[in-house]
């Protein structure tokens, strides 16, 4: 009996023969070329195993909030309280705000914090996903990028309920301060899903890099706690992108999350489309983060089983 098989993966993907249901599964494991596994079979298996990543995200969420009385309400309450604290700090530092600009500032901080925390959760949870998945990694063969991907899925699950919260706060604010210029919705809001996707993909690419670093240097995740705090202050979240002029605007462009956060402010607070430089910046950071992240992660993936 001679069977004809499709191209094989060296990463353990299963290739059934073409002679019926009882055909055997043959897996071939060979050395990786250029340190990385062949990427097409890798991503094919990644896609086939996506249910595992989705369930892992769901179960991780369940485990975290199982014994918390307020449960998942904390997902909204935490960034909401944080936004209030930052709003108070910002307005106090500025010597107070009038009732119309005050609501604009609050809305800007609110959506900025929600977006930044979404990216931060992807990065910091993704960074710990490999070291936290020790036994799974030692016991099962699967594309390891599923673990940081699962963290990203989980972060999205925690992020999306904050969007109705934003609308609720702005709606209530507009009742009390009807002269405020914040739009509740307009056609430019159609840009929002693209901006959220750009932020998520960039953050996922970065999480791949930090996940590898955390395997090699276990203090990376601790360092990230402080780094992301400084990152927040350097991002257009507590300040508006228009506050930077001339060459200072480079600080938005060199920040991987900067263009997406600046575009967020334009769409959500001013109701205008993102600027061309923001769209270009988002695209460049997506490509850079994913290309570097994917190469760095897949080329080091083999080491995980001996370094965990």
């Amino acid at each position: 009996m001679e069977l004809d098989f499709d191209p094989m993966s060296t990463t353990g993907s299963k290739q059934p023969g073409k002679v019926g249901e009882s055909a055997p599964l043959i897996q071939i494991f060979e050395p990786h070329k250029a340190q990385t596994p062949p990427l097409i079979p890798y991503f094919k298996e990644f896609w086939e195993r996506r249910a595992f990543a989705l369930e892992l995200a769901r179960f991780a969420d369940k485990a975290e909030y199982l014994e918390s009385k307020l449960g998942k309400a904390w997902l909204i309450l935490n960034p909401l309280f944080l936004s209030m604290v930052y709003f108070l700090l910002v307005t106090v530092l500025r010597g107070g705000a009038n009732k119309n600009t005050g609501l604009t500032t609050l809305a800007h901080i609110l959506i900025g914090i929600f977006m930044f925390y979404f990216a931060q959760n992807i990065i910091s949870d993704g960074a710990q996903s490999i070291t936290a998945g020790g036994r799974l990694i030692l016991n099962q063969a699967f594309p390891r990028a599923l673990l940081p991907f699962s963290s990203s899925v989980r972060a999205f699950g925690q992020f999306w309920p904050t969007i109705p919260t934003y609308f609720a706060v702005v709606l209530i604010g507009k009742i009390f301060y009807p002269k405020t210029q914040i739009p509740l919705a307009n056609l430019n809001y159609l840009w929002a899903p693209f901006i959220i996707a750009a932020l998520a993909i960039t953050a996922f690419g970065l999480s791949l890099i930090f996940a590898v670093m955390n395997v090699y240097f276990r203090d990376t995740s601790k360092l990230l706690t402080y780094t992301t705090r400084i990152w927040l202050y350097g991002s257009p979240v507590l300040w508006k992108p228009e506050m930077l002029h001339g060459w200072h605007r480079i600080f938005i462009s060199i920040n991987p999350l900067g263009p997406a956060l600046a575009a967020t402010s334009h769409v959500w607070i001013e109701g205008v489309r993102p600027s061309n430089s923001e769209l270009i910046g988002m695209s460049v950071w997506i490509v850079l983060a994913m290309a570097i992240g994917t190469y760095f992660f897949t080329s080091r993936e083999r080491d995980f089983a001996v370094r965990i």
Partner: peptide
């Protein structure tokens, strides 16, 4: 199990693997 790819050589596995 396919967890640790070879440095040199090859492994061919004919069948579904379960590991502990």
């Amino acid at each position: 199990a396919g967890i640790m790819p070879p440095t040199t050589g090859r492994i061919v596995v004919n069948g579904k693997i379960s590991t502990l």
